[in-house]
């Protein structure tokens, strides 16, 4: 169907964007509050590196971090693409801008997975 063929492929990116947006809005404030405010103020104990690595030994922690960070990268890539296109008025350059943004998100994904898989 011709009309079918012209359908945008945006749904794939949008799912990553929407999921990432939800996760970032829901979980990032908790992390920022804990590690950026409460721990520096001494209101909650600050774990040392040994404790953090022990926490990372649990596969659930790694899966949680992988999901949170990877979707956050794709959320950022999708939003950055629209922001650059509209703020600079360069929608005609959407494709190369999309490529740069999504390659950045893919690089973030690879880096996240590499770190989570290689940390002892």
């Amino acid at each position: 169907m011709a009309a079918h063929a012209r359908r945008s492929n945006r749904p794939l990116g949008w799912v990553m964007f929407g999921t990432g947006g939800f996760l970032v809005a829901f979980f990032f404030p908790i992390h920022i509050l804990l590690t950026g405010v409460l721990q520096p103020l001494g209101w909650v104990p600050t774990p040392d590196q040994h404790h953090m690595l022990t926490l990372l030994e649990n596969p659930i922690t790694r899966i949680y971090l992988a999901i949170l960070l990877i979707f956050a990268f794709w959320h950022a890539g999708y939003r950055l693409r629209d922001t650059i296109c509209d703020a600079l008025g360069v929608r005609a350059l959407d494709f190369p801008i999309m490529l740069v943004c999504f390659i950045g998100a893919a690089a973030g994904t690879v880096a996240t997975l590499w770190m989570l898989l290689t940390v002892p």
Partner: peptide, 8 residues
């Protein structure tokens, strides 16, 4: 409608 509206 989706055929029309899901385009770019």
């Amino acid at each position: 409608r989706t055929d029309i509206l899901s385009q770019h």
